[in-house]
Design a protein around this nucleic acid. Structure first.
Lengths: 109, 109
DNA sequence: AAATATAATAGTAATATTGCAATATTACGA
DNA sequence: TCGTAATATTGCAATATTACTATTATATTT
């Protein structure tokens, strides 16, 4: 009890839910927006300053975003440079949009 | 500690996160899909049978979906008939899609 | 090599979510 | 009105999430 019963749902629904969950926290939304605004990648410390949460908390959110492959990182001196994986972002856009469009079509049958 | 710090984020980000959260559970995704497929509304009990979770659990998920205005209900005998609010669904679609499009544009600068 | 800076990890407390059984509420039919 | 069916609410246990401090690992200066 307590944990989501993934086994009773279709894989497609589990995946859509997993993707949506990444965007279901305002800090992650802000982080994604911020990284997307930075020319040529951005540094974790800058995100910490920008968002106003402790560094480990930001690190944790970054790792959630990474889990669906939405972040690329590369070493840059002693810092890490994060950037949005455009292909993955586009895949997320299509996944969500297709869901809404299909649901819309069905709803107005 | 423990709860999301809504006050440090922009209202826009809080709202997007709130909407995304509705779609961040496979049962809710399945429920929304199922309702959208039913010609002229569908009955709660049918959802319970379809999804395979206990009735109170379904009821709880329905109330989460209602919170963002995505469900219309109407009495139908002793049952309730649920249907998707098309306008709201479309608004959700645009909200998410605009976010992705904006983020995409920024990311590929 | 020692000090410093950056980010990840471990550990933990507070809170939220998920799911169920039990119960309450509401509406209908006999 | 009594019983029944459909849905909501309550209360609770299990688990997940959020956020923090302290620590660690790694790379860069000095």
């Amino acid at each position: 009890m307590g944990s989501t019963k993934l086994n009773i749902h279709e894989a497609e629904n589990n995946y859509l839910a997993k993707v949506a969950k990444v965007f279901s926290h305002p800090a992650r939304v802000a982080i994604i927006k911020y990284i997307s605004c930075c020319e040529s990648g951005c540094i974790c410390n800058d995100i910490v300053k920008e968002i106003g949460l402790a560094q480990p908390t930001i690190s944790q959110h970054l790792s959630e975003i990474k889990k669906i492959g939405l972040l690329d990182q590369s070493a840059s001196g002693k810092s890490l440079s994060y950037s949005i994986n455009s292909e993955k972002l586009n895949a997320c856009r299509r996944l969500m949009n297709d869901f809404f469009v299909k649901t819309q079509v069905n709803a107005s049958k």
